[in-house]
Amino acid sequence: MSEPIIDIRDLSKFYGKARGIEHVNLEIGVGEIFGFIGPNGAGKSTTIRILMNMIFPTSGSAKIMGMDVIKETKKIKSQVGYIPSDANAYSSMVVQEFLRYCARFYEIQDGEQRITELSELFELDLKRKIDDLSMGNRKKVSIVQSLLHNPKLLILDEPTTGLDPLMQSKFFELLRSENRKGMTIFYSSHILSEVQMLCKRVAIIKDGKIIQMEDIETLRKKQLKKVHAEFRDQVREETFSITGITSVITGPGNILSFMYSGDINELVRLLSANKMINLMIEEPSLDEIFMHYYK
């Protein structure tokens, strides 16, 4: 991989004694669409806020495009777009006035054209006061402002909150199109289906620590299988207490469902020791993979 566009090394943040993130390491390559998933409070926003120099790390370092996020924040931000999870634009401003205000911070040649183009795409009424907008429309304003200056890197923190499915679809299409033009996307979310649809690689954060970093496909396929086995006779859960079997659920009609990570031959040997009526081994959804890692 060439020089990573985001390079986080041993990054920790504590709020007094409370943990924000601990020893986070991340490398994101130029042109990637990278997913950053974890539940609320896992440390996603803390990581992003350090990258955007809103908060300062307790230890460790972070670089964007080879520049230190603290020392060279101005240069970095001129090339980064950011969609916050829960931010209010200046409520007394009209949408157009706010977007023009945002655009003036950058050296944009075709600012007005870009505002019109993006607003039309998201069906955003430029003449309305921000205070009068619904949550979804405010999110559209947030999306538009982040893309005005054609950033090289786009950082998104739970970007689809409030967007209807049609707009989400348009938004994802726009992200894919911008990515094809070379934009790197760092997509933080707790909605796994979104990450699955969009991202090529993903990091899972839990309790402030990165617990897994994989290609989406690898993560999906990596040994973890979802198994449903139906037996002729009743079987005891304890029979299946081998390494790799987790989340065992006993269903009606002697059905046993569980997640399995390990040698599939060993599993089949174990299962076939009992008379089976049916066996189904399938790819787990990302949600299920996610839950597996969160146990």
Partner: peptide, 17 residues
């Protein structure tokens, strides 16, 4: 407290500016 800081602080500006 009006939650506009996330827009302001993510512009190409230093804290000094």
């Amino acid at each position: 407290y009006n939650k506009t800081a996330e827009y302001l602080l993510t512009r190409p500006l230093t804290r000094s500016e």
